[in-house]
Design a protein around this nucleic acid. Structure first.
Lengths: 90, 90
DNA sequence: TTGAGGTTTAGCAAAAAGGCTATATAATGT
DNA sequence: ACATTATATAGCCTTTTTGCTAAACCTCAA
Protein backbone atom coordinates (compact mmCIF):
# COMPACT_ATOMS: atom_id res chain seq x y z
CA UNK A 1 0.00 0.00 0.00
CA UNK A 2 2.68 2.47 0.95
CA UNK A 3 5.30 0.86 -1.17
CA UNK A 4 5.51 3.74 -3.60
CA UNK A 5 6.00 6.15 -0.74
CA UNK A 6 8.96 4.25 0.61
CA UNK A 7 10.55 4.10 -2.81
CA UNK A 8 9.85 7.73 -3.52
CA UNK A 9 11.41 8.84 -0.27
CA UNK A 10 14.53 6.80 -0.83
CA UNK A 11 15.98 9.53 -3.01
CA UNK A 12 17.42 12.64 -1.32
CA UNK A 13 16.46 14.97 -4.15
CA UNK A 14 12.85 13.88 -3.91
CA UNK A 15 12.87 14.42 -0.18
CA UNK A 16 14.20 17.92 -0.72
CA UNK A 17 11.45 18.58 -3.22
CA UNK A 18 8.91 17.69 -0.57
CA UNK A 19 10.62 20.03 1.86
CA UNK A 20 10.33 22.78 -0.70
CA UNK A 21 6.66 22.12 -1.26
CA UNK A 22 6.02 22.17 2.45
CA UNK A 23 6.41 25.92 2.19
CA UNK A 24 3.73 26.08 -0.45
CA UNK A 25 2.84 25.13 -4.04
CA UNK A 26 5.38 25.77 -6.75
CA UNK A 27 5.67 25.43 -10.49
CA UNK A 28 7.80 22.66 -11.92
CA UNK A 29 10.26 25.25 -13.14
CA UNK A 30 10.66 26.91 -9.78
CA UNK A 31 11.27 23.57 -8.20
CA UNK A 32 13.85 22.63 -10.78
CA UNK A 33 15.64 25.92 -10.21
CA UNK A 34 16.53 24.77 -6.71
CA UNK A 35 18.59 21.86 -7.92
CA UNK A 36 21.71 21.33 -9.96
CA UNK A 37 19.99 18.63 -12.01
CA UNK A 38 18.45 19.39 -15.37
CA UNK A 39 14.78 20.14 -15.78
CA UNK A 40 13.82 16.79 -17.31
CA UNK A 41 15.50 15.03 -14.43
CA UNK A 42 13.47 16.97 -11.90
CA UNK A 43 10.38 16.40 -13.97
CA UNK A 44 10.91 12.70 -13.61
CA UNK A 45 11.39 12.99 -9.87
CA UNK A 46 8.12 14.86 -9.73
CA UNK A 47 6.53 12.03 -11.65
CA UNK A 48 7.72 9.53 -9.08
CA UNK A 49 6.42 11.65 -6.23
CA UNK A 50 3.12 12.07 -8.01
CA UNK A 51 2.72 8.38 -8.62
CA UNK A 52 3.43 7.74 -4.96
CA UNK A 53 0.65 10.17 -4.18
CA UNK A 54 2.94 12.48 -2.27
CA UNK A 55 2.27 15.42 -4.55
CA UNK A 56 -0.41 16.41 -7.01
CA UNK A 57 -0.28 18.85 -9.83
CA UNK A 58 -2.56 21.41 -11.29
CA UNK A 59 -2.07 23.02 -14.64
CA UNK A 60 -2.40 26.75 -14.69
CA UNK A 61 -1.91 28.11 -18.15
CA UNK A 62 1.47 27.07 -19.37
CA UNK A 63 2.62 26.31 -15.87
CA UNK A 64 2.15 23.17 -13.86
CA UNK A 65 1.87 23.82 -10.19
CA UNK A 66 2.88 21.11 -7.77
CA UNK A 67 1.38 20.75 -4.33
CA UNK A 68 2.45 18.66 -1.43
CA UNK A 69 -0.20 16.09 -0.62
CA UNK A 70 -0.15 16.45 3.13
CA UNK A 71 -2.95 13.95 3.57
CA UNK A 72 -1.03 11.07 2.05
CA UNK A 73 2.09 12.01 3.93
CA UNK A 74 0.17 12.14 7.16
CA UNK A 75 -1.52 8.82 6.67
CA UNK A 76 1.76 7.22 5.79
CA UNK A 77 3.32 8.62 8.93
CA UNK A 78 0.40 7.39 10.96
CA UNK A 79 0.74 3.95 9.47
CA UNK A 80 4.44 3.94 10.19
CA UNK A 81 3.90 5.01 13.73
CA UNK A 82 1.27 2.37 14.28
CA UNK A 83 3.64 -0.30 13.12
CA UNK A 84 6.93 0.82 14.54
CA UNK A 85 6.25 3.73 16.76
CA UNK A 86 6.58 3.25 20.46
CA UNK A 87 4.20 4.62 23.05
CA UNK A 88 2.86 7.84 21.64
CA UNK A 89 -0.37 8.10 23.52
CA UNK A 90 -3.26 9.31 21.41
CA UNK B 1 21.83 11.60 8.85
CA UNK B 2 18.89 9.27 8.24
CA UNK B 3 19.78 8.61 4.69
CA UNK B 4 20.72 5.01 5.31
CA UNK B 5 17.39 4.41 6.99
CA UNK B 6 15.42 5.68 4.01
CA UNK B 7 17.43 3.54 1.65
CA UNK B 8 17.17 0.50 3.87
CA UNK B 9 13.41 0.81 4.15
CA UNK B 10 12.95 1.15 0.42
CA UNK B 11 13.10 -2.62 0.02
CA UNK B 12 9.98 -4.64 0.97
CA UNK B 13 11.97 -7.65 2.11
CA UNK B 14 13.93 -5.53 4.52
CA UNK B 15 10.77 -4.02 5.89
CA UNK B 16 9.40 -7.50 6.45
CA UNK B 17 12.55 -8.46 8.26
CA UNK B 18 12.03 -5.56 10.63
CA UNK B 19 8.45 -6.68 11.19
CA UNK B 20 9.74 -10.11 12.07
CA UNK B 21 12.27 -8.74 14.50
CA UNK B 22 9.61 -6.63 16.18
CA UNK B 23 8.40 -9.88 17.72
CA UNK B 24 11.83 -10.54 19.16
CA UNK B 25 15.45 -11.40 18.30
CA UNK B 26 16.10 -14.12 15.77
CA UNK B 27 19.06 -15.90 14.24
CA UNK B 28 20.02 -15.13 10.67
CA UNK B 29 18.88 -18.59 9.66
CA UNK B 30 15.47 -18.25 11.22
CA UNK B 31 14.98 -14.96 9.49
CA UNK B 32 16.03 -16.38 6.14
CA UNK B 33 13.58 -19.25 6.59
CA UNK B 34 10.71 -16.79 6.34
CA UNK B 35 11.60 -15.74 2.81
CA UNK B 36 11.81 -17.34 -0.58
CA UNK B 37 15.21 -15.76 -1.21
CA UNK B 38 18.39 -17.67 -0.56
CA UNK B 39 20.18 -17.33 2.70
CA UNK B 40 23.13 -15.26 1.39
CA UNK B 41 20.66 -12.84 -0.11
CA UNK B 42 18.98 -12.37 3.24
CA UNK B 43 22.36 -12.05 4.86
CA UNK B 44 23.07 -9.10 2.64
CA UNK B 45 19.74 -7.50 3.45
CA UNK B 46 20.65 -7.88 7.09
CA UNK B 47 23.92 -6.16 6.35
CA UNK B 48 22.10 -3.20 4.86
CA UNK B 49 19.77 -2.96 7.83
CA UNK B 50 22.71 -3.20 10.17
CA UNK B 51 24.62 -0.47 8.42
CA UNK B 52 21.55 1.73 8.60
CA UNK B 53 21.55 1.10 12.33
CA UNK B 54 18.11 -0.47 12.25
CA UNK B 55 19.31 -3.78 13.62
CA UNK B 56 22.30 -5.02 15.55
CA UNK B 57 23.70 -8.48 15.84
CA UNK B 58 25.18 -10.57 18.55
CA UNK B 59 27.08 -13.75 17.94
CA UNK B 60 26.08 -16.60 20.15
CA UNK B 61 28.17 -19.65 19.39
CA UNK B 62 27.76 -20.51 15.78
CA UNK B 63 24.60 -18.47 15.53
CA UNK B 64 24.26 -14.78 14.89
CA UNK B 65 21.25 -13.28 16.56
CA UNK B 66 19.69 -10.17 15.11
CA UNK B 67 17.82 -7.62 17.17
CA UNK B 68 15.67 -4.75 16.08
CA UNK B 69 17.21 -1.46 17.11
CA UNK B 70 14.07 0.20 18.36
CA UNK B 71 15.96 3.29 19.47
CA UNK B 72 17.15 4.18 16.00
CA UNK B 73 13.76 3.43 14.52
CA UNK B 74 12.11 5.63 17.10
CA UNK B 75 14.42 8.53 16.59
CA UNK B 76 13.98 8.31 12.86
CA UNK B 77 10.22 8.33 13.28
CA UNK B 78 10.48 11.27 15.60
CA UNK B 79 12.58 13.13 13.10
CA UNK B 80 10.12 12.33 10.35
CA UNK B 81 7.23 13.50 12.42
CA UNK B 82 8.95 16.73 13.32
CA UNK B 83 9.52 17.46 9.66
CA UNK B 84 6.34 16.29 8.03
CA UNK B 85 3.99 15.35 10.76
CA UNK B 86 1.03 17.58 11.34
CA UNK B 87 -0.10 18.81 14.70
CA UNK B 88 0.81 16.10 17.12
CA UNK B 89 0.81 18.01 20.34
CA UNK B 90 3.47 16.86 22.80
C1' DT C 1 42.59 -31.94 13.29
C1' DT C 2 38.71 -32.99 10.80
C1' DG C 3 33.79 -32.46 9.87
C1' DA C 4 29.48 -30.34 10.06
C1' DG C 5 26.29 -26.57 10.66
C1' DG C 6 25.58 -21.56 10.44
C1' DT C 7 26.80 -17.28 8.39
C1' DT C 8 29.26 -14.01 5.58
C1' DT C 9 31.97 -12.58 1.52
C1' DA C 10 33.23 -12.62 -3.55
C1' DG C 11 32.05 -12.44 -8.02
C1' DC C 12 28.81 -12.46 -11.60
C1' DA C 13 24.46 -11.39 -14.27
C1' DA C 14 20.11 -9.13 -14.60
C1' DA C 15 17.16 -5.43 -13.44
C1' DA C 16 16.17 -0.89 -11.70
C1' DA C 17 17.34 3.92 -10.88
C1' DG C 18 19.22 8.26 -12.06
C1' DG C 19 21.18 11.72 -15.18
C1' DC C 20 21.66 13.76 -19.74
C1' DT C 21 20.34 15.40 -24.55
C1' DA C 22 17.02 15.68 -27.98
C1' DT C 23 12.37 15.80 -29.04
C1' DA C 24 7.50 16.15 -28.29
C1' DT C 25 3.39 18.40 -26.27
C1' DA C 26 0.81 22.44 -24.28
C1' DA C 27 -0.36 27.09 -23.82
C1' DT C 28 0.50 31.98 -24.99
C1' DG C 29 1.23 36.04 -27.72
C1' DT C 30 1.84 38.02 -32.23
C1' DA D 1 0.11 30.07 -38.54
C1' DC D 2 4.46 30.80 -36.04
C1' DA D 3 7.70 31.65 -32.42
C1' DT D 4 8.39 31.40 -27.53
C1' DT D 5 8.12 29.63 -22.97
C1' DA D 6 6.99 25.76 -19.78
C1' DT D 7 6.86 20.99 -19.06
C1' DA D 8 6.92 16.06 -20.19
C1' DT D 9 8.57 11.99 -22.72
C1' DA D 10 11.97 9.07 -25.35
C1' DG D 11 16.15 7.06 -25.77
C1' DC D 12 20.71 6.30 -24.23
C1' DC D 13 24.35 5.50 -20.85
C1' DT D 14 26.26 4.70 -16.24
C1' DT D 15 25.74 3.41 -11.50
C1' DT D 16 23.35 0.99 -7.96
C1' DT D 17 20.66 -2.70 -6.35
C1' DT D 18 19.39 -7.36 -6.06
C1' DG D 19 19.60 -12.26 -6.52
C1' DC D 20 22.34 -16.31 -7.38
C1' DT D 21 26.26 -19.78 -6.76
C1' DA D 22 30.67 -20.82 -5.00
C1' DA D 23 33.84 -20.27 -1.67
C1' DA D 24 35.54 -18.60 2.77
C1' DC D 25 35.07 -18.07 7.78
C1' DC D 26 33.55 -19.42 12.58
C1' DT D 27 32.32 -22.30 16.15
C1' DC D 28 31.33 -26.63 18.14
C1' DA D 29 32.03 -31.58 18.77
C1' DA D 30 34.44 -35.64 18.12
Amino acid sequence: MHEGVFRALADPTRRRILELLKAGPMTAGEIAAHFPSRQPTISRHLGVLKQAGLVFDERQGQYVIYHLNATVLQSWLQWLWDRWGGDHNT
